[in-house]
Design a protein around this nucleic acid. Structure first.
Lengths: 208, 208
DNA sequence: ATTAATCCATATTGCACAGTACGTATTACG
DNA sequence: CGTAATACGTACTGTGCAATATGGATTAAT
């Protein structure tokens, strides 16, 4: 469905196919959920067969590990870029929320949640998921510290406010299952900014 | 696992078994997720066999409809009781959040989300889910109007603030997959109250 | 140029699942 | 009391799934 087989080096083709499979897996996880994202579905979406899938990923869990690593990497890079862009400038809450929404509110990250919820009894997967969480949270923290060069660590209060922000975005994301008008999401994000702003200001004044 | 078979009327026993199955379904949905909540699992959890399950609910979807109706009913009743209790009194935001958390943040409501996410491609189920949403939201609105007798309808702004509240609670609920310390949830709810309070006050002053 | 390795497809296997068929014991009813 | 209906349980069936086995075609290595 997607594969365009052109003549290349084996290593390149191999990497390309793996990437195709990872992206197809993400797409199927978002579209059909954990239970609906079968190997056949994923393979078909990537334009290959289950044979190819099992050649590159010996097990379905392996493929999901691939998804996890891929998304983790992207998130880390995005946070790093965002941190550099806002270095030293006063925090623009609206921009921050927009960034967090683009990372965690998009359909792509939802695939991770599907994995989290679908593999809740798989011990090996849970370990990996905790690592993923560790990595991405660390990236967010580093991003924050880069943007506030005068800080050396993140106080508890700030961490919790960020947690609340993430929770709200997560919950808003789930509204996609029932609503589809983008205007709603935009409005709610604006409202979220307005509601968080005061306790952010409070934090700032406490720091002084 | 759960059934205590005492001699009763057939209708009573029948109703009791159905209730047992519904509660077992909720438990399995929460514990193992949509994919993990198999008919065998649910039946075992209820202390019966799949034969009994299929006797009372001809299809698995029927059982899920039962779950949906049961939870909807409970929510409607809870909102009604809460509305009566707070009739005419000024809104206690903290109490409201606590109530919403007890309804939507508990493990029970999570089963509904499992159904929503797991049946996203099932048109019949989606219809039912929309009805459920309609009913419970209407109950929340009625609750709100009961608590504010001077109001005749809910303005857009208030509706959106309530939506934000629900989103945040929903997102916080998902933290259960990664965290387990109740203190965290308590803290975040407090923070949520603090963040919503100002925009609530603003709404109030606008009304005057 | 052979040989080996890689990439991928087709066909198959084994298993878990929802749903069915049917049997049995208990309860309701005339 | 006898008969029908109900409430289950047991055993089975068909299906969809992840995973395996195998073979062919292309690419790399010697």
């Amino acid at each position: 469905m997607r594969r365009a087989l052109n003549k290349k080096r084996q290593v390149e083709r191999s990497a390309e196919t793996q990437q195709l499979l990872i992206e197809a897996a993400i797409e199927m996880l978002c579209e059909k959920g954990f239970a609906g994202a079968t190997t056949a579905n994923i393979a078909a979406c990537a334009g290959v067969t289950t044979g190819a899938l099992h050649h590159h990923f010996s097990t379905k869990d392996d493929l999901l590990f691939g998804v996890l690593d891929y998304v983790s990497e992207r998130i880390v890079l995005e946070f790093r870029a965002f941190g550099r862009k806002g270095r030293g400038q006063p925090i623009d809450l609206q921009l921050l929320v927009k960034q967090l929404w683009s990372i965690y509110g998009g359909p792509q990250y939802w695939s991770i949640w599907e994995i989290i919820m679908g593999s809740r009894e798989d011990e090996r997967m849970r370990e990996r998921l905790l690592q993923h969480r560790e990595r991405t949270m660390e990236a967010l923290n580093q991003c924050w510290l880069t943007m506030n060069p005068n800080l050396t660590f993140i106080d508890q209060r700030t961490a919790r406010v960020l947690d609340l922000l993430l929770s709200s975005i997560r919950g808003l994301c789930m509204d996609r299952f029932m609503r589809s008008d983008e205007q709603y999401f935009h409005d709610q994000l604006t409202l979220l900014v307005a509601s968080i702003e005061p306790i952010f200001a409070e934090r700032r004044s406490l720091a002084e």
